[in-house]
């Protein structure tokens, strides 16, 4: 079994005393941070990784049952943190990874000293007295809709990541790594993401936390922030 760092395609860069871990959200992989993370490299030790099932992670490590909830993703984060001996690090989590960070905080005491949650939502589906932003039916429709775009995956790659004919070298890189997701895993992860409910876990957040919200974020509205 490959190590955790290979399993999650962990990339460590930068030069700093303190570490900053970037966790990508649903729909992509660590490439999501390619315009963000470099800005922190002069001052921080940056840690990027792919969730198992996404990007350059070890797909063979993916197990539908194991990853049927965000807790498993948080376990992975803690394993990575232990592998790198992180202490008092900053955790930056986008979208679903915001809650992964909240869970990881509990699972690995001392590992993270600050949370930065971007476009976070503790629950996407509306509940009694709670606005998540979506009805249960809409989320079901989304899961169904995802299949429509997986038709093109028969050749193990989505048409949307097909190469740029003018720049084959770019195409090569992108098809190999950019937002590569196995369709079955993508669908399963979408279900995990959009049916998650971590509202009660928020009480466990005892470290300084910065919540960043986008003004027109259709997935995590301002209200849920």
């Amino acid at each position: 079994m490959p190590g955790v760092l290979e399993r999650n395609n962990v990339k460590v860069r930068g030069a700093g005393e303190q570490s900053m871990m970037f966790a990508h959200g649903y729909g992509c992989d660590q490439n999501m941070w390619r315009f963000v993370a470099p800005a922190f490299e002069p001052d921080f030790n940056t840690v990027l990784f792919d969730h198992v099932g996404a990007g350059g992670s070890d797909l063979s490590a993916y197990n539908k049952r194991k990853y049927s909830n965000l807790s498993a993703c948080a376990d992975d984060v803690v394993e990575i943190g232990r592998g790198l001996e992180l202490h008092d690090a900053v955790f930056v989590g986008h979208s679903v990874s915001a809650m992964v960070g909240v869970l990881a905080l509990q699972k690995g005491p001392g590992m993270f000293g600050k949370l930065i949650l971007v476009g976070a939502s503790a629950r996407y589906i509306d509940d009694e007295g709670y606005v998540g932003g979506f009805s249960a039916k809409q989320i079901e429709e989304l899961l169904e809709f995802l299949e429509a775009n997986h038709m093109g995956w028969s050749a193990q790659m989505a048409p949307l990541i097909m190469g740029n004919p003018d720049r084959p070298e770019l195409a090569e890189e992108l098809t190999n790594s950019f937002c590569r997701t196995d369709p079955d895993i993508a669908k399963a992860f979408a279900r995990v993401t959009f049916t998650s409910d971590n509202r009660k876990d928020l009480a466990g957040v005892t470290v300084p936390t910065l919540i960043l919200q986008c003004s027109e974020d259709i997935i995590a509205s301002e209200a849920v922030g």
Partner: peptide, 14 residues
């Protein structure tokens, strides 16, 4: 709604 989510999570980053 699914289209919006898909656009935001997949197409916009692409």
């Amino acid at each position: 709604v699914p289209g919006r989510i898909y656009y935001e999570t997949h197409l916009a980053p692409l």
